[in-house]
Computed example of a mutant assay.
Amino acid sequence: MTVLGITFSAAVLWLFVAGIMSILEAITLGLTCIWFAGGAVGASIAAMLGAPVVIQVIVFLIISIVLLAVTRPIAKKRFNAKVERTNVEAIPGKEGIVEKEIPVYGSGQVRVGGKMWTAVSPGNKIAEGSIVIVKDVRGVTLTVEEKKSEE
């Protein structure tokens, strides 16, 4: 194949595609382009073995899709395993103490992690001094439920 007066083999072009995909992966870190680089290497090998262009493209697509489907979930899980929840994301599931009674259809105040929050408990009155579990955070209001004695 000749491009701008320079003759390239299909194998070299596939390796060029693999290089471009690797560079894109290094820039984006999205765990997407690297699998296509693997497919391009496979297509390059097919080209070196004398496979026609149609077969090279099929090899590229099959290897890319298989690598993407099989290894991306594993890689994402491994790289994102140590993500620590912070701030508001970490509050649901925590315990707090009611500082100001929470009426049935109104709001009270709960202390969670040393901070005071406005809190509601749909359909339940919760007395001051009760221990509660945070179920949800909506803006600056916690939805809580009273902790049962057997928990």
Rank of each mutant, 00 (worst) to 15 (best):
A40K: 00
G5D: 08
V53Q: 12
L68A: 11
L49Q: 13
A81Y: 09
I27M: 13
M116I: 10
G113R: 00
V12Y: 00
E89F: 13
I27E: 12
T86K: 15
P122L: 15
I133C: 07
A127P: 02
G5A: 12
A26E: 10
E101K: 15
A18P: 02
E145Y: 09
E25G: 05
A11R: 00
E25F: 06
A90K: 12
N87A: 13
K94N: 03
V3H: 04
I27L: 13
G38Q: 08
G19D: 07
T7N: 12
K76R: 14
A81F: 01
T2E: 14
S121R: 09
E95G: 08
G30P: 05
T141C: 09
V66F: 10
K76L: 14
A18W: 01
G113T: 00
M1I: 10
R138Q: 15
A26I: 07
G129K: 04
W35F: 07
R78T: 08
G93L: 05
L142F: 13
E150V: 10
A81P: 01
Q109T: 01
S121K: 08
A69H: 04
S44N: 12
A127W: 02
Q56A: 07
T143P: 09
A90G: 00
A81N: 11
A26Q: 10
S107E: 14
F79A: 11
